[in-house]
Simulated assay, not measured.
Amino acid sequence: MSQSFQRIRDTQRLPEPLRGGVVAIGNFDGVHRGHQAVLDRALEEAQRRGVPALVLTFDPHPRMVFRPETPLFLLTPPPLKAQILAELGFAAVVEQPFTREFASLDAERFVSEILHEKLGICHAVTGFDFHFGNNRQGGPAYLMDAGERLGFGVTLVDAFRDEGAEIVSSSRIRELLCEGEVAEAAGLLGYRFTVEAEVTGGKQLGRTLGFPTANMALPESTALKHGIYAVRFRRSDGTLHDGVASFGRRPTVDDNGAPLLETFLFDFSGDLYGQTCRVSLFGYLRGEEKFDGLEALVAQMKRDEQEARALLAGVRPLSELDRRLTFANEPA
């Protein structure tokens, strides 16, 4: 992440050099190709005007506030979302705390207090269907009218459609990941789906079998299909390693355990405990299986390693963002 990029939690503490910028507004969960169409327009507008480019997003996701009983599979938790926005070239992300109190702000107060007074924006860029304020009372027309009154411009970006003319959405990507369709999900994201977590200690069974793994507990709401994946692993120092990962409950050895992501890094030996690392998924190899003993499990793991090595040997970046996240060997 750029040393100058800033994550800001309180709009009242926006540094003075960031005032007067162009702001892209939205949840941007996944920062997928549809979101990138909005974000690219904001970057272009900021460059044209010679002002900072910022993103205004909301944390937690509004669905988690309004429907807390329904777990939401977040594609990009705030730290990873910030990393991606920094790679795209933004100066800062403002992570507006989303509470019931904030949600009760009417549309006029959102525009006048948040956008005009606290952020001092010169231009806003949003999707064509952006709504805001209590009961979603504010919409594109309202925002444009408010901009005329308060002195900022507004750009609305149409829905982005993929090569099959279908709208790219976060919910569609979640559905693909639930089915293990990580290659198709990557096509909509514009980069390989990536998770980030701290490496924790395990039972070290993999080490005794000749396949030591880096274990990462993902959020309970992670609805990724259980199974075996070809992956690329980024250590906290930015170093990349190819590998094969298992996500699930380990039915052969621990059928009642909580889901865990266990990554075997190729050609690596070292201590990763305590490091916050990222795993990018390149291909789904197979589903979870319960083997008749450890010997059969090890034989299958060797086949998985060969298949993952072959798959990863032929991969190419999907985009400049994908190259930065999962191909570059320098720290991101």
Rank of each mutant, 00 (worst) to 15 (best):
L105K: 13
L150F: 13
L311A: 07
S221E: 14
G201E: 06
G283N: 06
G133R: 04
C122V: 10
Q12N: 09
R161G: 04
S112D: 11
E330W: 13
P77M: 11
D255A: 15
P52R: 09
G147Y: 03
R323N: 14
K290W: 02
L18M: 10
E44M: 14
I114L: 15
H123K: 14
A299Y: 00
E101M: 01
F247I: 04
L85C: 00
F266S: 11
F102I: 03
Y284N: 05
L281Y: 09
K225M: 13
R232A: 01
E45F: 05
G187A: 08
G210R: 10
T11D: 07
E101T: 13
H61T: 06
F193W: 15
T200N: 02
R192F: 11
G153C: 00
A308I: 08
A37T: 06
T200H: 08
L297Y: 05
V231W: 01
A258P: 02
L150D: 06
T239G: 09
E45L: 15
E295W: 00
A328C: 12
R33D: 04
R9N: 14
A24V: 12
F128D: 08
I84C: 01
G243N: 02
K203G: 03
V253K: 00
G210I: 05
E45D: 14
G153W: 04
A46E: 08
E95N: 10
H116P: 00
T70H: 10
V31F: 04
R235V: 00
D255C: 13
F211K: 04
L188E: 08
P79K: 06
A186Y: 00
S171M: 11
E108G: 11
P60G: 09
F5S: 05
L56F: 11
G89N: 15
L177T: 04
L105F: 15
K302V: 08
P71I: 00
H226M: 15
G139A: 13
D304Y: 11
E166Y: 05
A245F: 09
S236G: 01
R13H: 15
A146C: 15
L311W: 09
E179L: 11
N135P: 00
A296D: 13
H123S: 06
D254P: 03
L224E: 03
Q36V: 03
S280V: 06
R249V: 14
I84R: 06
S280H: 09
A92V: 09
D40W: 03
Q47H: 12
E16G: 03
T252H: 10
F264T: 00
Q83S: 04
L115K: 03
R234G: 03
L54K: 03
